[in-house]
Simulated scan of single mutants.
Amino acid sequence: MLRHEFQPGRLIAGTALVAAAVIYGGDAGGAWETPWFVMIPLVVGGLCLAGAVGAVTGQVRRRGRPAPEGADADGHARTTGG
């Protein structure tokens, strides 16, 4: 049984930041030479992609959830006219 819901946006953000850390660590350790401007698009692009995936995931999960009792098809609460 899962203890929490899978969140792909956080997975993408973590992967991008770990990749940046590995690249920076290899450069600092002398394994290779990485220009400084490589990290900016990697980190910013990874975080933007993670945000977009998180937003899409939230919309998909909201659409897939059944409406609460006493709500119409759009999920709005019904009121008795007055």
Rank of each mutant, 00 (worst) to 15 (best):
W32L: 08
M39R: 00
R78A: 03
L42A: 08
G30A: 11
T57H: 05
A20R: 01
G75Q: 06
L17M: 15
V44Y: 01
E69V: 15
A50T: 01
P66Y: 06
L47C: 12
A67N: 15
T34V: 14
A31M: 10
G51D: 09
G75L: 05
W32M: 11
T15H: 11
G54I: 02
E69P: 10
D74W: 12
W36E: 13
V43I: 15
R10A: 13
D74Q: 15
Q7G: 02
P41D: 05
T57A: 14
A19S: 12
Y24Q: 04
L17H: 00
I12Y: 02
P66D: 10
D72Q: 11
A28Y: 04
T79R: 12
R3V: 02
E5Q: 14
A77W: 05
V53S: 02
G81Q: 11
W32Y: 15
V43M: 03
H76A: 15
D27T: 02
R63D: 11
F37E: 11
G64F: 06
G70I: 02
A13D: 00
T80K: 07
G81S: 14
V18R: 05
L47F: 07
G46N: 09
G70H: 07
A50V: 02
V18G: 01
Y24K: 07
R62M: 14
P68K: 05
L11F: 14
Q7V: 03
P8C: 09
V18T: 12
L11H: 06
Y24H: 11
C48Q: 03
C48S: 12
A28E: 10
V38T: 11
R3S: 13
R63N: 09
T34W: 02
H76L: 13
R62G: 07
T79H: 08
W36M: 06
A16L: 09
